[in-house]
Design a protein around this nucleic acid. Structure first.
Length: 293
DNA sequence: TATGAGCGG
């Protein structure tokens, strides 16, 4: 009386004792005791027990099981703390500890970007405050070279090779001690060799993108490298960039590439000389490239 | 087979 008992049907299978399969016969006292080894660090638990089988022979039974790692001992302090948090949302109706993970059935609408200025966008976004963000973003795009707003990034400035804006233009303090790139190198400021007056545009500068005078080369053999293309095309004049399209996954050449010439005439020459030229067993196709979208 | 990668304030 008054003894606390576990509620019926609330027994967890994992806590069940495994020796509820007593063999009738009552000879079990003749057997060595049951041994439990582990669980070890990998959660492997071994149970060695002895029984009489149906023919009355003594048999040894070894059971190896993987047990769940004992929870709180391995949890961080923070994780233990989290367990006492109040449940919220749909989970308030859940029993404590009944579920660690909730599956959200909430519907999440994802906006599909649409071509700018398409009819659908115009009508759908009318009066939608979120739609204004895109326009605000355009205003944030201010070229640091020519200061034009909403047209291009600094790296794409059509005037990037021309003189930078002079002092006295917008937003500049009249007499500033602060060295600026816009007003040319200040005394003693480091200027990379590639940017010193008279420096030739080669090597490292080739990475710099310039879509002008871009020549597309197709039907390249798969082992053509950018260096090979450069060798081949540089004979016509200074080359500002060489690119061989590679497969993102395999790293293999996709068989085409681009060569940018500093001077348009050199591109013309290259096209007229190299288009149809046999290179590595293949006939090259060389033509002006369409600007990339 | 065939028109490049990535970086933003």
């Amino acid at each position: 009386m008054g003894v606390e008992t576990a509620p019926p049907n609330k027994v967890r299978w994992g806590e069940l004792d495994e020796d509820d399969d007593d063999n009738e016969g009552g000879l079990d006292f003749l057997l060595p005791p049951r041994q439990v080894i582990g669980p070890d660090n990998n959660g492997i638990k071994k149970v060695v027990e002895y029984k009489f089988n149906e023919e009355g022979n003594k048999v040894k039974i070894t059971t190896t099981t993987r047990v769940r790692k004992l929870a709180n001992a391995r949890l961080s302090k923070r994780a233990v703390e989290r367990r006492s948090w109040l449940k919220f949302g749909d989970a308030v109706h859940e029993d404590v500890g009944s579920r660690l993970t909730m599956v959200s059935t909430e519907e999440i609408i994802l906006e599909r970007p649409r071509a700018h200025g398409s009819k659908l966008e115009e009508t759908k976004n009318a009066g939608d405050p979120l739609a204004q963000i895109g326009k605000a973003g355009a205003v944030l795009m201010v070229c640091r070279t020519c200061l034009k707003k909403g047209d291009h990034w600094t790296s794409r400035c059509p005037y990037k090779d021309l003189a930078p804006p002079t002092d006295g233009s917008i937003d500049k303090p009249p007499s500033s001690e602060v060295p600026t790139t816009a007003s040319g190198p200040s005394k003693g400021a480091y200027v990379p060799p590639s940017q010193r007056p008279g420096a030739e545009r080669t090597g490292a500068d080739m990475r710099r993108r310039n879509d002008e005078n871009s020549v597309r080369v197709t039907n390249l053999s798969e082992d053509t490298r950018e260096a090979d293309l450069h060798e081949l095309f540089r004979t016509f004049g200074p080359v500002s960039r060489v690119y061989v399209a590679l497969d993102q996954k395999t790293g293999m050449s996709r068989g085409f590439g681009f060569v940018n010439f500093v001077n348009k005439e050199d591109g013309e020459k290259a096209i007229s000389k190299l288009n149809g030229y046999g290179y590595d067993n293949l006939i090259l196709r060389v033509e002006w490239s369409a600007p990339r979208s």
